[in-house]
Design a protein around this nucleic acid. Structure first.
Length: 338
DNA sequence: AATGGTGTCAACCGCGACCTG
DNA sequence: TCAGGTCGCGGTTGACACCAT
């Protein structure tokens, strides 16, 4: 039994939201196929439709079963990956090549890293996304063990949620500035703290690929960002021990949900409102010390809007105590400008 | 306990790029 | 050059888990 197959069996022991043996074929079929077929010659369209209906009967969709996972993993272990359509047929899987490829790349690959994103990883995602936009695959290539799908989901569920809370578009200048001047410094701070707490381990551990893949410290011309020393330190020193992939990386997400996040890990914002406030205040203090702060003010001239936006965002998910603290954030801000 | 809302994430889809004969 | 097959990407969907009421 190879390593990946072993992990599939391990996974079988743990109930998982998806892929726990549920019957496939949730959907009726391809949404576009019938409509597309009717645009052509009636006879040809009918023939194609019949053919597709036959295929739909033969091909499975929806969650993968453990047996299917084992089949795929064992086949790839023996024959390698690639040529997915042929692979699907040869392995006896009633799946499309696409489906097999996706299952392998996003879930079954031995080096897939699972669980919450570390502060380092979040920082890197924000950084790279600000450069490349929704180039998920390109971004994922800089986060060893992470898939484009996972990063995409992270962005859509976490990042866009906070843009919504701030009442602004995720691509707006306002949100990008909030990321750069509030969120990213705080992540860097968290990553740095995580790194220092793990420094003993770090001293003995090899440098990870994140460091190797760290982007050069500049944004494009349209987006003048230069990595601050704090950020650079965090990215180059705190990845140790967080990006190492192991054979247990297939542990189910449900299991990770049940466990507290690792120190410095991707604990949810809303779940730590107190921490949010003090970290934000800290970020603001860093902001005043930043060299580019002057440019930021000059560019915007609406600092109060930005801050009130954050206050509003946090108040949505905060306790009364934290809300009252958050309002003092304005006081901090005014004090800094007096 | 039941129910409705929300978040998460695996899996699907269409499309364009690339490959091959 | 062209047509068909394959691959990879980004967007979207929907089932399930969790939480608030």
């Amino acid at each position: 039994m190879n390593q990946a197959a072993d992990m599939v069996l391990q996974q079988q022991q743990q109930p998982s939201g998806y892929g726990g043996g549920a019957v496939a074929c949730r959907r009726a079929g391809p949404m576009m196929s019938a409509a597309a077929a009717t645009k052509r010659e009636p006879a040809a369209a009918a023939e194609e439709q019949d053919h597709q209906q036959q295929e739909e009967v033969l091909l499975r969709r929806g969650p993968w079963t453990v047996d299917e996972d084992l089949t795929l993993v064992n086949y790839i272990a023996q024959h390698g990956e690639g040529r997915w359509n042929a692979l699907a047929r040869a392995a006896g899987l009633k799946r499309t090549g696409k489906s097999c490829r996706l299952r392998w790349l996003n879930y079954l690959r031995p080096d897939v890293k699972r669980g919450d994103f570390t502060a380092d990883e979040q920082l890197l995602i924000l950084d790279l996304h600000s450069r490349w936009g929704n180039r998920w695959s390109k971004i994922a290539s800089h986060l060893p063990g992470r898939t484009d799908n996972e990063i995409k989901n992270y962005w859509r569920t976490r990042v866009q949620k906070h843009a919504k809370q701030l009442n602004c578009d995720v691509n707006s200048r306002r949100f990008k500035d909030a990321m750069r001047f509030l969120w990213m410094p705080r992540l860097a701070e968290r990553a740095s703290a995580s790194a220092s707490s793990a420094s003993l381990v770090a001293a003995a551990a090899p440098t990870t690929a994140v460091v190797k893949a760290a982007p050069d410290d500049s944004y494009d011309d349209d987006y003048h960002y230069h990595r601050s020393p704090a950020t650079a330190t965090a990215s180059s020193s705190s990845t140790t021990g967080t990006t190492t992939t192991t054979s247990s990386s297939l542990a189910s997400n449900d299991a990770s949900k049940l466990q507290p996040a690792a120190a410095g890990g991707g604990d949810d914002w809303a779940a730590a409102a107190d921490h949010e406030f003090w970290s934000t205040a800290s970020a603001l203090q860093q902001l005043t010390a930043a060299d580019h702060h002057r440019g930021f003010q000059d560019h915007h001239g609406h600092d109060d809007d930005l801050i009130s936006g954050w206050v509003q965002g946090f108040t949505d998910a905060s306790s009364d105590d934290v809300v009252s603290s958050l309002w003092s954030l304005d006081d901090i801000w005014r004090t800094m400008h007096c």
